[in-house]
């Protein structure tokens, strides 16, 4: 059974000028011990998807359809209080910027024990032991001493380790890491990625790793999901997606990286920009930028289909109905 299972997820923003559909028909699942890399241009909907899973969509954004299942339990429409018990306990979240994720006025020990005591009915001294154990686990030297330190007394990389320790407080089965290394130095990035990898291998945590960095994907992910303008356009094993991308958009993505470590925020090889939510063309949202566009692409959206690589799927007319145009 997958740890998390997302079926046909749709997210929308009601506005004065109508409803903006930010995410449509998104489906994927993550197994225990697996890292799913999620890539896509800025504004594709990666963060929204993560926020929807933990129930932290900012109003007026809302889940308008689909189902989110965590370890067999439907958590799509839990009440705020029920969802609060899931967050931090069963799902750990790591955000981009370790410098601003920690409360500057509390010691890291206080932030750790507070999180543990919120979800576990144990004594303070047990919680403190657990906090120190966590700090050790994420590789913070002299954890007993650092327990009483304030966030500003840590370097950026060490702070991100504290953030990860906080996400791990209650042994979550799913971790959502939204660009966890973007704000860090390259050398520190590698350490943090290695840490996330160890966690999923050793503890069987399922990880959703959002990033713009294909190097990070190649290094850490088992599978990759590519999101374009609110839809999943391709998903598959990391090697096949990187070596043999199927969707024209994914190909553009891969061509855009002359080397590993390149940032994917801007894509020199794909002309044009991703359409705004209120300006999507009919048919496939990628059609205005696609070099292989066919008439059908301007009318209808292709479903996600299996390709010749096992486990690799793409939503493109190239693969629909068995027509292959490569």
């Amino acid at each position: 059974m997958s740890v998390v299972d997302i079926e046909n997820l749709s997210i929308e923003f009601p506005t004065r000028r109508g409803i903006l559909k930010a995410i449509e028909g998104l489906s994927f699942s993550i197994e225990a011990g697996e890292i799913l890399g999620v890539v896509g241009e800025s504004g594709a909907g990666k963060s929204l998807t993560g926020n929807a899973i933990v129930g932290l969509l900012e109003p007026p954004g809302r889940v308008s359809g689909g189902k989110i299942t965590l370890k067999g339990r439907d958590i799509t429409h839990l009440s705020e209080n029920e969802m609060r018990r899931v967050r931090g306990a069963e799902i750990g979240v790591i955000f981009q910027d370790p410098l601003t994720s920690l409360n500057p006025l509390y010691t890291v020990g206080k932030q750790l024990t507070q999180t543990i005591l919120t979800h576990r009915n144990i004594s303070y001294s047990k919680a403190k032991d657990r906090a120190i154990e966590l700090l050790t686990e994420v590789g913070i030297p002299a954890p007993e001493l650092r327990f009483d330190a304030f966030p500003h007394e840590f370097s950026g990389g060490m702070r991100q380790r504290v953030v990860i320790a906080l996400a791990l407080c209650c042994d979550p089965s799913l971790i959502i890491a939204d660009e966890p290394t973007t704000a860090l130095d390259v050398s520190v990035q590698a350490q943090i990625i290695a840490l996330l990898k160890d966690l999923s291998r050793d503890k069987g945590v399922a990880t959703m790793l959002v990033t713009h960095d294909m190097g990070v994907i190649a290094e850490a992910a088992d599978r990759v999901a590519v999101i374009y303008s609110g839809r999943l356009v391709e998903i598959g094993d990391v090697r096949s997606v990187i070596d043999a991308p199927k969707h024209p958009y994914t190909r553009g993505l891969m061509d855009s990286i002359p080397q590993i470590g390149q940032n994917l925020k801007y894509l020199p090889n794909i002309e044009g920009a991703m359409p705004r939510l209120d300006g999507r063309p009919d048919g496939c949202a990628f059609n205005p930028r696609c070099k292989m566009v066919k008439p059908v692409c301007r009318e209808e959206i292709a479903a996600l289909r299996a390709t010749e690589n096992a486990g690799q799927m793409a939503a493109c007319w190239i693969y629909d109905g068995g027509h292959k145009y490569v």
Binding site: V54, L56, R84, R85, V86, R87, G88, A89, G92, V93, F95, D97, T100, S101, L102, N103, P104, Q114, T115, T118, H119, V163, L166, A167, C169
Partner: peptide, 17 residues
């Protein structure tokens, strides 16, 4: 609106805290 408040919510802390 600060990030650390968002992160505190993501850790499931009580709204009161």
């Amino acid at each position: 609106r600060a990030d650390f408040i968002k992160f505190a919510r993501a850790r499931g802390l009580r709204q009161r805290d």
